[in-house]
Design a protein around this nucleic acid. Sequence first.
DNA 1: CCAATGATTAGGCAATTACCTAATTATATC
DNA 2: GATATAATTAGGTAATTGCCTAATCATTGG
Lengths: 107, 107
Amino acid sequence: MQRVFEALASPVRRKILAYLAHAELSAGDIASRFEMSKPSISQHLSILENAGLVVSEKRGQFVFYRQVEDNLANTLAGFVQEVCPVGRPLRRESATLAGDRGKGGEG
Amino acid sequence: MQRVFEALASPVRRKILAYLAHAELSAGDIASRFEMSKPSISQHLSILENAGLVVSEKRGQFVFYRQVEDNLANTLAGFVQEVCPVGRPLRRESATLAGDRGKGGEG
DNA sequence: CCAATGATTAGGCAATTACCTAATTATATC
DNA sequence: GATATAATTAGGTAATTGCCTAATCATTGG
């Protein structure tokens, strides 16, 4: 949990997570989206991986990164439950999402 | 949002938020719960306040702090929506909370 | 006004973070 | 094996963070 919040404290790392929201990307793909050296991005990726927010898989020359879906949402949801006085906003959020069930799909 | 995540990166600050989940406390009340100098706690409190997560109110000699309830949950919920692939865990969370409605109470 | 209490501001220091370049490791291709 | 490409590791530096003590500001009460 500490590692998750440390990881999220960086704008670069949050942006990486956003990139990985919809697609798996190689380290180079990610680095090319930032004006920053590849080693720096590699470091950011390892911080995200140590936090359990992403996993990497080597295929050939490339290392692909993807999100570990459950960890981020679960960690934040758990934290909110613990620290928020009542969790009213989350409940409101819940109502909305609950209303969606049956329209979208669970997975 | 950057300030919120920066604020949450510190264990001390998260613990302060937890203390403020159920009660309003003075700066001294909070400081007494940590093995840390009052000025340091004061600094942590100002970081939380600048992030919009708490507000302070001076009454007599004392400065009382309390959570700004909506901001934390809303910020995190918004972030999860943006960055999580599908939001499945949040949906599951939702189902639970939705099931609670009618039993507990909305406020 | 003067002393006591609560809290913040100021100033300084150690540890950490974030970045860079250079070097290394691993894979693919010839 | 030699070369090119992808990625990480190593090493170094500037900026930031986190903590402390001392000093200051504000309020209460004799």
